[in-house]
Design a protein around this nucleic acid. Structure first.
Lengths: 127, 127, 127, 127
DNA sequence: GTGGTCTAGACCACA
DNA sequence: GTGGTCTAGACCACA
């Protein structure tokens, strides 16, 4: 369920954060589900445990997951994720659109792109 | 015409590149117009000349400007810019939209955002 | 009489130690009262017996309870608890106050807080 | 201005965060002052740069400092610190007072302690 | 020079 | 077993 692109410019830990956010938003991870342990996920992804730790720490800071000492990490309220998403993700989208506007790209072209992505099921690469 | 935000997380040289692209796309800079010299622009922006140099180098690599040795830097073909824009900027927009899709944000919300940006004249900050 | 918050950041065994201390100080547990057995308390709390064991061990180290082998654990001298409390708890309070002082929080604000807590019956969560 | 207690139970990075908060609140660090670089502070404290980095990252997350790429870290708005303080520090103080209440420690004793700390200039150890 | 990310691996507390 | 902290040190982008 979680995979990363080691060649991406975005840091691995951010990719993990983002991917887990997605899984929560889409409902594949539900409240109180147990996340893979830091070490096991690190092994699966082929990265250092510290990197996963950093991702989990950021998720916990945003109340998207919670830690039970000695037990592991668990999925928090979906609303916490939604909150962060609306705050940050839409901001990213807006910035991209503003840049397009500033470069004189016609609105119709953006609209077409939005439709295409949503109809094709967003299957393009994400990073 | 060119200004930067030194506090932004996006590198200064990228801000310069982007801004000059915009000026070309919008038509404020036309083919063969002379760009400010590296040193004078660096002075105006209060940044290190190396930073401006890096921006100009990137612009030249993309054929958006050309250098006449001893004379300075000049605006290239607008089409070259357009090409790069369609290659990179739309890609950025698409990635943002895909992320929104993956986070289960409804298409209508994105559409509304696009309209809002274009109607408000894109006056929000870009970086 | 004893309950814990498994989601709290403070270790479960410490919560148990603290709660038993409170019960002794307030007089609900009196000298030579029998404490629940390690196993039964562990069952009631839904935690690992090792965790309760660790709490009892720490209580015994501080002479707050004593063990009669084969019989169980019993409440010790209230003074032993009082001693430990004055040694540790007041220290914690002092540290918190010093931190407030160092952050330029006015004394009046702390005083108000003290009054509020004592008048409201300390009904806020403790952990 | 910044020092740590390696024997304290509280993590080094938290001690650094706390100390810098204090310096800002008290006015010894003012808006836009430059903080020591990650590496130099690490050298001074005798700790690993990663540890300082972690402290600075947390301070930045709370808008207490800001980073200028290639330049360093700088002090942010004092209000951001005050906000965090009132949110977190007073909470810690309250928890300590509640614990005292629950242990039947008389209010007068706490009051006396508050006065003592404030009059002695908070010169006791902090961690 | 600056900060940001990452690895490899240790050590600790906790359950 | 679990997560949290820390060291030592590498590598990168940026100014």
């Amino acid at each position: 369920m979680i995979s990363i692109d080691p060649y991406s410019r975005s840091p691995i830990y951010e990719q993990v954060v983002k991917r887990i956010c997605e899984l929560i938003m889409v409902g594949e991870l539900k409240k109180d589900d147990k996340l893979p342990s830091v070490r096991s996920l690190a092994r699966d992804l082929g990265v250092n445990p510290n990197t996963v730790q950093k991702a989990y720490a950021e998720l916990e800071r945003g109340n998207m997951i919670y830690t039970v000492s000695g037990k592991g990490n668990f999925v928090g309220e979906r609303d916490a994720v939604a909150g962060r998403i609306c705050g940050e993700l839409l901001n990213t989208v807006r910035e991209a659109i503003v840049a397009a506007y500033n470069h004189a790209i016609p609105m119709a072209e953006i609209m077409r792109l939005v439709e295409k992505v949503y109809q094709s099921g967003g299957e393009e690469q994400t990073v």
